[in-house]
Design a protein around this nucleic acid. Sequence first.
DNA 1: GATATAATCTACTCTATAGTGATGTAATTC
DNA 2: GAATTACATCACTATAGAGTAGATTATATC
Lengths: 112, 112
Amino acid sequence: MSNTKRHLSEEAFEMLGEQFKAFSEPMRLKLVYALMDGEKTVSELVEQTGGLQANVSKHLRMLLEARIVERRKQGLNSYYNIANDSVFDLCDLMCNSIQDRLEADLGSFSAR
Amino acid sequence: MSNTKRHLSEEAFEMLGEQFKAFSEPMRLKLVYALMDGEKTVSELVEQTGGLQANVSKHLRMLLEARIVERRKQGLNSYYNIANDSVFDLCDLMCNSIQDRLEADLGSFSAR
DNA sequence: GATATAATCTACTCTATAGTGATGTAATTC
DNA sequence: GAATTACATCACTATAGAGTAGATTATATC
């Protein structure tokens, strides 16, 4: 990766913040992770996340507005899917970062 | 990147969410970006972000607790710095994602 | 057309946190 | 040791959003 520092405007910082915020709730992360297997209906997501249907629907709406997921309606059902592959990289990067830190913390307690 | 789906516990989703949340405020992002040049004092950060000292201090504390930045105290000053290089990759990835989307949106309006 | 089902929307409560001005604290200078 | 400087914290207000229950809309089935 380049890692050159960008010049960001006020609006850019706000867009960035909103995008990060979309990933900041456990329920929304659960939904994103559930969708990593592929397209699913709201009912399936309700079942897999263990959330209430209204709540799941609300979070899906937020994810849709943040364009993290996309929606396809067919008959009675709404099918949701990950909108962009960068979501995979993003979650992977963040998970690795946390994991590295936890491992480093653990290392402080055991002789190396 | 691997992109294999992880199995995450409830606690893992909460940790992930908290980490993302730390990046979800424009002021905190401004601070992170200001620190990309290297270590800075609170006064410098106040000046460069245009925020009030109390607010900057509060956000720095949140970033410190989220372990996104680290602090070094010397004399009257507190010097803050980026704690982990993955921050660079993370911000870069998110910026690119947003930029790609904006370019795609723009493309919808101009013939290709 | 009546009924059932899937999803969304609305209204509400509750909690978290952003921003702000005043105050507190610790190191430094005189 | 009094004043100054740099930063942190407190007290307060305003706002955002998470969760929930119930109403509403749209589609399908009889």
